[in-house]
């Protein structure tokens, strides 16, 4: 199972995403922003970071990269695509997901272990969860405030397209506590928090069991492996 990870100029978490894919049992394939080929991968991860230094708007310049043209086309044909943090920003700038992400409500960059509730499990990247599962994964962003028009919010809520919601603390002022979304087909998911940083005991968030033992992020990558096999 080959999962591509795109590196843009300024991507930071591409290697962590590749490592998460490996730990989940997949084979990570490096993709380069300037290549239009996506090397016959079965799914794609757009990793976190600060592509193009967040110039213009976060994710806006990356959305124009040659590799994105192909990813947008293949996503329309059902290719599973996950956008994490800056990757989520790239997905909204590519119009693969609705709405936008703006500077955090309180202006500060926020870095914390974030509790989330899984709201929808009918997507390529959330099928390994039970609806209502509570998970904890790291969150680190400066521009993670999710916004959308009333009409879009109504559509997202009505059709159950919200995949993850912030629990206990809304760290960035996101409308309706939205942490992550899926598209109608369920192959494209974007979220601000970082599942790839919660995949290996000893390096994840603290859990009630032990310090740094949280591996809740792993299930996102396991979900796609399962959904690609069953597809």
């Amino acid at each position: 199972m080959k999962i591509g990870v795109v590196t843009f100029p300024g991507s930071l978490d591409d290697r962590d995403a590749a490592r998460a894919i490996r730990l989940a049992g997949g084979e990570p394939i490096s993709l380069w922003h300037a290549d239009s080929s996506i090397k016959k991968v079965d799914a794609v991860v757009l990793p976190g970071g600060f592509s193009y230094g967040d110039y213009l708007r976060c994710g806006a310049i990356a959305a124009q990269a040659p590799v994105m043209k192909n990813i947008i086309k293949k996503a329309g044909e059902g290719l599973p695509v996950l956008g994490i943090c800056n990757g989520f920003q790239i997905l909204v700038e590519s119009h693969l997901l609705p709405g936008g992400l703006i500077r955090n409500e309180k202006q500060h960059f926020v870095c914390r272990d974030q509790k989330l509730r899984v709201e929808n499990v009918d997507s390529a990247w959330t099928s390994g969860f039970q609806k209502g599962d509570e998970i904890t994964i790291p969150l680190k962003n400066g521009e993670g405030g999710y916004i959308a028009t009333d009409e879009t919010l109504k559509m997202l809520e009505g059709e159950g397209l919200i995949t993850f919601r912030y629990l206990e603390v809304n760290p960035n002022g996101s409308m309706n506590d939205i942490a992550g979304l899926r598209n109608e087909r369920g192959n494209v998911v974007g979220l601000m928090p970082h599942p790839e940083h919660a995949v290996e005991p000893g390096f994840g968030p603290d859990s009630p069991v032990a310090m740094r033992s949280g591996v809740d992020g792993l299930r996102i990558f396991q979900s796609v492996l399962r959904s690609v096999i069953s597809a």
Binding site: G100, A148, T149
Partner: peptide, 8 residues
Amino acid sequence: SFLSNGVI
């Protein structure tokens, strides 16, 4: 299309 984002 590019210099602005109509959502925001």
